[in-house]
């Protein structure tokens, strides 16, 4: 086992914005994660029919295999183009099933819109402008929230201590917006809402990793209880990039569209690209003019050699 390890918690006065962001995320979670509205479910037969309709809509061959139809049907139910056109699907084969199928899809679509993740998350369909911001504070579950908040505590606090709260909030929010834009650019028709602070945190992590690439992050390892087989190691901050972002890139390219993934890898990548671009820009500006260095290192002491 080898996991990143906090070297002590930063108190509120040391990282006020980090704690504020954590509090906002927690508040959002508790407000939106109560009892969920009941969803109508389509049965296997209806999902296959959705798959058939989807294939015909896109002029593709309808798979002969029932499992492939099910996968295509699941894909259809995550696609706004399907919801825009399913009422035009009017074959003459099983007209009885078709009538009940259309009303079930209507009901499914109505139920989707009642969910908090659809109201506050970001997706390719109709959305209000506020969802570009609210999605950054929504999470789909307790583990999702916990993972992101741990990362925020490590890297958010580190960036806030490095530079300033203003820079942290800029990187966080702008990174989230850029990540969302990247996500929608690559998946414009998706109806599955995206939630989570991951795009924002990717921007924070990438910025910090590139800007402080010589620093090291503490990891705790445990191989066995024997002495010498557990303890701390310090890995370069730059190792975060291949560990995290190359992994996201790899997962994005290796996920079949029909199967889909529960993680918006493109949002992570968009946020990371923004963080990398911003870090490189700042480095360039800092070399050219000390004024930028003053803006950036408003609260930073260069004598701190240790890891966050």
């Amino acid at each position: 086992m080898i996991i990143p390890w906090l070297k002590g918690l930063r108190f509120f006065h040391e990282a006020p914005l980090t704690w504020t962001l954590i509090a906002i995320n927690l508040l959002f979670f508790f407000l939106t994660n109560g009892p969920q509205p009941e969803m109508s479910n389509l049965n296997k037969h209806e999902i296959k029919l959705a798959g058939r309709a989807y294939a015909m809509m896109h002029g593709k061959d309808v798979p002969a295999d029932g499992s492939q139809l099910l996968l295509l049907g699941s894909r259809a139910l995550r696609d706004n183009t399907f919801f825009a056109r399913y009422r035009d699907f009017n074959p003459t084969q099983d007209t009885v099933a078709l009538r009940s199928w259309q009303s079930k899809v209507d009901e499914f679509q109505r139920d989707l819109k009642k969910r908090p993740v659809d109201m506050f998350g970001l997706h390719g369909g109709e959305k209000h402008p506020g969802s570009w911001f609210t999605y950054q504070f929504m999470h789909s579950g307790a583990w999702h929230l916990l993972g992101n908040m741990i990362m925020l505590m490590i890297f958010g606090a580190a960036l806030e201590a490095l530079a300033s709260s203003a820079l942290l909030v800029f990187v966080y929010v702008a990174g989230g917006l850029f990540g969302a834009a990247f996500f929608l650019y690559l998946s414009p028709d998706t109806s599955a809402p995206m939630v989570g602070a991951s795009a924002s945190l990717s921007a924070v992590m990438a910025f910090y990793a590139l800007f402080e690439r010589k620093k090291r992050i503490k990891f705790f390892y445990f191989l066995s209880p024997s002495p010498g087989y557990w303890g701390d190691i310090y890995l370069p901050t730059l190792v975060v990039l291949p560990l995290y972002f190359v992994e996201d890139l790899a997962q994005y390219f290796s996920t079949a569209e029909e199967v889909g993934a529960a993680i918006a890898y493109t949002a992570h990548l968009g946020g990371a690209l923004f963080g990398i671009a911003l870090a490189l820009t700042f480095r360039f500006l800092c070399r050219r003019s000390p004024r930028w260095e003053q803006i950036l290192y408003a609260s930073y002491s260069r004598s701190q050699p240790e890891a966050p």
């Binding site: 080898i2 295999d65 499992s67 492939q68 996968l71 890995l235 190792v239 291949p242 560990l243 190359v246 992994e247 890139l249 790899a250 997962q251 390219f253 290796s254 996920t255 079949a256 029909e258 199967v259």
Partner: peptide, 28 residues
């Protein structure tokens, strides 16, 4: 550490095969 560094890279290089594998896993 080597695994953590190389695994994402290898996954990226083999992504087209992994995509087909994932699809087949669910379909058949």
């Amino acid at each position: 550490v080597d695994f953590s560094l190389f695994w994402p890279l290898f996954t990226l290089l083999l992504s087209s095969i992994l995509k087909k594998l994932q699809y087949r896993y669910y379909a058949a």
